[in-house]
């Protein structure tokens, strides 16, 4: 019994640090870069994504024996899109300002590779409870990373944290941190830091292809590249 509990605990915690979806697996970069101009947006986006991730993981895990292998990706996308619509309507009703801040990135949760990636890699192969914890852990890891980026960018770019002025008086805000280049820069720094602190001691080579449901066609691309190099 105790052994079972530790393994379940591990499913939950792995997403937060060891397999952090953003910094270690490098999934869901678009949302990470786009909504982290303010710490509060980061939390809103993180919470919305976590909800979708947990729900879709549970449903996909329940249906894993029903969904035929050949049409699994469209089936997953439909399930995820259903939950995204729920979140969209919910946020529109209860927090119009958050809806406005997240804009098109709210419906775009549907194509966030963290969700499809977890569905393909984990939920479609595991029982309901581990899938739920996996989704929750990954969601918390995603939210924490977004929050870290949001705080850094808001602090440096606007001199505030959660809208509360921190830098007032002794430092001019560096506006470029709120602009797209600042997003890329802070993200690069965080990945470098996470890589340095990880066991391997280095940052990931590229985006998280391994966890992407479409990795097969991507590998074809890489083979094509490699083939060319060999020919040269």
């Amino acid at each position: 019994m105790e052994k079972k509990n530790t393994s379940l605990w591990r499913e939950f915690t792995k997403g937060i640090i060891k397999e952090n979806p953003v910094l270690r697996l490098v999934l869901g970069c678009c949302a990470t870069l786009a909504v982290t101009t303010a710490a509060s947006n980061a939390i809103g986006m993180g919470a919305a994504t976590t909800f979708v991730l947990v729900c879709s993981n549970v449903v996909i895990s329940l249906l894993r024996k029903v969904i035929p292998d050949k049409v699994r990706i469209p089936a997953f996308i439909t399930i995820v899109a259903g939950f995204v619509t729920i979140v969209q309507l919910f946020i529109k009703a209860f927090s119009p300002s958050l809806d406005k801040a997240l804009g098109v990135f709210l419906p775009l949760i549907v194509v966030n590779c963290i969700i499809l990636g977890r569905a393909e890699m984990f939920a479609s192969k595991n029982k309901v409870l581990p899938s739920l914890l996996d989704g929750l852990g990954m969601g918390v890891g995603f939210t924490a990373t977004l929050l870290a980026m949001g705080i850094i960018r808001e602090l440096l770019g606007a001199g505030t944290v959660f809208g509360i002025p921190v830098f007032s008086g002794f430092m001019e805000p560096i506006i470029i941190f709120l602009l797209p280049p600042g997003g890329f820069f802070v993200f690069g720094m965080l990945i470098a830091l996470a890589g340095k602190l990880s066991k391997e001691g280095k940052a990931p080579e590229s985006t998280g292809c391994a966890a992407c449901p479409l990795a097969a066609s991507c590998q074809k691309l890489q083979q094509k590249d490699n083939g060319k190099e060999a020919a040269n």
Partner: peptide
């Protein structure tokens, strides 16, 4: 530098292109 090999340096380069 070793720490920046791979994705970090790519992102810093992307940042400069975005500038």
């Amino acid at each position: 530098p070793e720490t920046f090999k791979g994705l970090p340096i790519t992102l810093v380069a992307a940042s400069l292109v975005a500038v």
